[in-house]
Design a protein around this nucleic acid. Structure first.
Lengths: 223, 223
DNA sequence: CCATCACCTTGACCTGAATCAAGTCTGGTA
DNA sequence: TACCAGACTTGATTCAGGTCAAGGTGATGG
């Protein structure tokens, strides 16, 4: 997710008035949820600011975070009649909401938009494929390493130097639920990485990768 | 996957000649692979007969099976420039191959096809969401139960009676790699289910669900 | 009709990550 | 400056599932 063309770009002669007509802006406060898993799916969303987490729940409360979304990301493709996931703001977010009906009017007027949506879905599918491998086959160390590397690709300016400064805007609980681990395990492994001089933990949210190369290797199970 | 409309149905005045022009049939023998992960993605595929497994690999050979596909299923959406997965026949399969260029000609002529592809991708996304929860948060028992229930939905005639006969066309190794377990664990849990009178194991590939209701409960972690 | 081989099951044991249980750190409040 | 609450870390212990190691089973061929 992140840093790629917004859906507007697929509308060559992008008539922004029409686009605005079919959508409405909304603001979601930290921790507030705006998509309920299983509810009828009536809207698409585009994240315009802040961050959002997507998740599914088991009846007893176990949670799997299936993705984080930020500015420019598209939400709601993983839904037929009802949403296959819940979504909730992570530190406050602003969204653009597109009712399905309106989106359909848009795709009729701008056929390339439909193609754009498919591309978006494909990209998401490819990511999920990798995430299934992470959840099904990687060790805890590999998962955390993968997570760190993944976060790097969300940076605006991929630092040219050898060390990379990372901001982890989500609490450990979310990282754990994203990686299929417990918070304790995530914490322990970050501590271990620190002891191994792979990272510096400047604060809870701010981490510096001292050896991104090596962390990538660990992420792929090739350490 | 399975038992839903083929892409042809989105072509209202379906000109089969045109469709045939843009595609080629192929046969893949048992165990032969026809998509290599990471290779440039030039084709879409539709499974017309037999079965296929999709998977990703880690460098050391660990494998995650990300899905099984059968008649009518569409392959290749989870790809941008290169395939995000490998694919291999499971007991022999026949496929229809659509080069991207040809597919593009088709979507130009039949715009609703593009929509159909997006729907297909959405459906797949929703399935993957559930599978991530399985891999990240479910116990081995829950995974195997989920697998059995999932297989039911692939049956032609969902048996009206209370017990359901299932055919598992894939070896234990594939089930294990699909569920993120080992073959031993899969085997043990099937034996446990048998001992608990939840299933009968008539042969390696043929299983009878004696209490589908209860198995569903286990699958959702509510036993 | 037996041998073989591939696949599956079962058992014994081990281990990575979960669970349970203290601490510690941080930032907000008074 | 001290207090508090919530989030994080760390340690001790447990346990689900993995690993290692025999057996079983059933389809194929000699």
């Amino acid at each position: 997710m992140g840093r790629r063309l917004s859906i507007c770009n697929s509308i060559d002669d992008c008539d922004l008035a029409i686009l605005a007509n079919e959508s409405s802006r909304m603001t979601v406060a930290d921790g507030r949820s705006f998509i309920e898993e299983g509810e009828p799916a009536n809207d698409f969303f585009v994240v315009t600011g802040g961050r959002v987490k997507l998740f599914t729940l088991l009846p007893d409360g176990r949670r799997q975070i299936t993705g984080f979304a930020e500015g420019g990301d598209f939400l709601g493709l993983a839904a037929s009649t009802s949403y296959a996931f819940g979504a909730e703001a992570l530190g406050g977010a602003t969204l653009c909401r597109f009712p399905h009906a309106g989106m359909q009017r848009l795709t009729e007027r701008f056929p390339s938009l439909e193609h754009r949506l498919r591309e978006e879905a494909s990209r998401e599918l490819a990511l999920m494929q990798a995430r299934m491998t992470l959840l099904g086959r990687k060790t805890a160390r590999e998962r955390v390493a993968t997570f760190l590397i993944e976060r790097c690709s969300h940076l605006d300016r991929p630092d040219p130097s050898h060390t990379i400064e990372l901001d982890l805007p989500m609490p450990r609980t979310d990282i754990a639920d994203y990686l299929g681990l417990t918070i304790e395990t995530v914490s322990r492994i970050l501590s271990a990485f620190k002891k191994e001089k792979l990272i510096n933990i400047r604060s809870i949210t701010h981490i510096k990768l001292l050896d991104p190369e090596r962390i990538s290797m660990i992420a792929e199970g090739m350490e």
